[in-house]
């Protein structure tokens, strides 16, 4: 087991390095550069010397190899440097927004789990009945509906209902206040984006729960449990669900890493100042340092989630370790 963990840990390195190289090259392929954008802004003439000086300050005059090595060296030391756009430390810029995005991501995950496991279970148990069809329809709708459109619909619904009830339309607040400072205010802000993101997320997990459970329900030990007269509820809860949840947990873990992508769009709809918005801004501003840091953050979360999932699998199924 120990050997397996070390091997898996070492395998993370080429993935992280490769992703670093990929984002490095991609960013430098984008035409234009941050100095020109920052100084010229919309229009106007800027002294080429000033641009040159800016490049020197940001270290963009160095060769690509040196820039790349510098980026990797910084990453290893957890020193992400300063944003090329605002000049402030990247850690500061990210931590400003991290709380909000993380909270929405966690709430969306919670929504997904609370919806997916009961719905997936009932759909599998009542296979091919109208309940099953309704749940499947509901979950395919979740996959089909763009989360930004769901967000727009939620805002629309809020505007119409609050106007009808209180006479003046109400919109969720956009300035972040931590949960422990003002829970009600915080939740009124985060719950709607979390629902919009969580619905899609739950749809993927519901489908997985259903098909995993259906497979397990055909196993011999479930038949044995039935034969010895165990009631259905206990068979599901004690025997079937426990074994069916493994792939569900995997998909929830993997999708969590991808929530970042979903947040890019959701934050746009609800006008929230989170990581997703920072991402779009840093790509359009050619903020190499910031984009690199954000991509590495997302990739690291993804690789780490995969690592944890693999370890759990290996722990549960000894055959995997020896492969």
């Amino acid at each position: 087991m120990y050997q397996y963990i070390v091997k898996r840990l070492l395998l993370m390195i080429p993935t992280l390095l490769g992703a670093a190289l990929l984002v490095f090259v991609l960013m430098r392929l984008i035409p234009g550069d941050v100095c020109v954008l920052r100084m010229v802004g919309g229009a106007g003439y800027v002294d080429p010397k000033a641009i040159e000086q800016c490049r020197i300050d940001l270290g963009l005059n160095r060769t690509y190899v040196i820039q790349f090595l510098d980026f990797i060296w910084g990453f290893i030391r957890f020193d992400l440097g300063n944003s090329m756009w605002t000049g402030r430390p990247i850690v500061e810029e990210i931590s400003l927004r991290f709380e909000l995005s993380l909270q929405i991501a966690l709430m969306a995950t919670l929504t997904a789990i609370l919806l997916a496991i009961p719905l997936g279970t009932i759909s599998a148990v009542k296979q091919n009945t109208w309940i099953d069809y309704a749940v499947r329809g509901f979950s395919i709708a979740g996959i089909a509906m763009p989360s930004f459109w769901l967000g727009i619909l939620i805002i629309l619904g809020l505007l119409i209902t609050t106007k009808g009830l209180f006479g003046s339309p109400w919109m969720p607040p956009i300035k972040y206040v931590p949960l422990w400072v003002d829970p009600l205010y915080n939740l009124s802000m985060t719950i709607f984006p979390a629902l919009a993101t969580g619905y899609r997320y739950s749809a993927v997990a519901t489908r997985m729960t259903r098909s995993a459970l259906l497979e397990v329900l055909r196993e011999d030990y479930v038949r044995t449990a039935r034969a010895k007269g165990l009631i259905q509820k206990l068979i599901i809860r004690r025997h079937a669900l426990k074994n069916a949840l493994l792939p569900v947990v995997t998909i929830i873990g993997i999708e969590f890493a991808f929530l970042m992508g979903g947040l890019v769009v959701t934050e746009q709809v609800f006008n929230l100042n989170g990581l997703g918005k920072l991402f779009v801004a840093s790509v359009t501003n050619h903020d190499y340092a910031m984009t690199q840091a954000l991509v590495m953050l997302v990739v690291a979360i993804f690789v780490f989630t995969n690592f944890v999932v693999d370890i759990i699998y290996a722990w549960l199924d000894p055959r995997i370790r020896y492969r």
């Binding site: 490769g18 992508g261 890019v264 769009v265 997302v298």
Partner: peptide
């Protein structure tokens, strides 16, 4: 190489 591309978020 596939791992790298898979880890890279689609929308990014």
């Amino acid at each position: 190489v596939l791992d790298i591309f898979m880890a890279f978020p689609l929308i990014i």
